[in-house]
Simulated assay, not measured.
Amino acid sequence: MLLRPRSIPYGKGGGLLTWKTSAIGLIEAATVVLRGVTAQTVSGENIAIDPHCKIKTVDCSGMLCIDKKAKVETMTGDYTMK
């Protein structure tokens, strides 16, 4: 599963972009890759949280990779940090 934000052009000529993040309550899958997502809970076996994500709780049972520009409040489960 891969979630990405929508980009919205603005300004003269449409040359500039801003990121509008997606807000989600629960994301659950075996493999999860997130980019620019705001979520309450993310649950899965292998989880990658890329920049611009804001996650309240991550429950992981395998490999967990969190970008230093992402924000995660709580991590639970039997995971290995990558």
Rank of each mutant, 00 (worst) to 15 (best):
G15Q: 11
G77V: 03
T41V: 13
T38K: 08
G25H: 05
T38P: 00
L16F: 13
K20W: 00
V37K: 03
C60A: 14
C65G: 08
P5F: 06
V32T: 04
L17Y: 14
K71T: 14
T74I: 04
M63E: 13
I27Y: 00
T80W: 00
D78W: 00
E45V: 06
K54H: 12
E73K: 12
T80R: 08
S43Y: 03
T76V: 06
P51V: 11
V42K: 01
G15N: 12
A70C: 06
G15Y: 13
S61C: 08
S7V: 13
T41L: 03
I66E: 09
A39T: 06
N46A: 12
S43A: 15
V37S: 10
G62Q: 11
G36C: 11
V58G: 07
K56D: 13
C53Q: 05
E73T: 07
T18Y: 01
H52M: 05
I49P: 08
K82A: 15
T31M: 02
M63T: 01
L34W: 01
I27C: 07
I8H: 15
I47H: 03
S61V: 03
G25E: 13
T74A: 10
V32Q: 02
V72H: 05
G15T: 14
H52F: 14
L34G: 11
T18G: 14
E45R: 08
I24M: 12
G14P: 06
A48L: 09
A23K: 05
I55K: 07
M75V: 15
I55V: 15
K54M: 11
I8Y: 13
D50A: 12
A39H: 04
P5T: 08
K71P: 00
K20Y: 02
T57P: 00
G77P: 02
P9E: 10
L2R: 12
G62Y: 03
V58S: 09
Y10R: 07
T41G: 03
G14S: 10
L17W: 10
L26H: 05
E28T: 06
G44W: 01
I8N: 14
V37N: 05
W19Q: 13
V37L: 09
P5K: 10
M1I: 13
G44P: 04
I27V: 15
K82Y: 09
G25L: 06
L34A: 10
L26V: 15
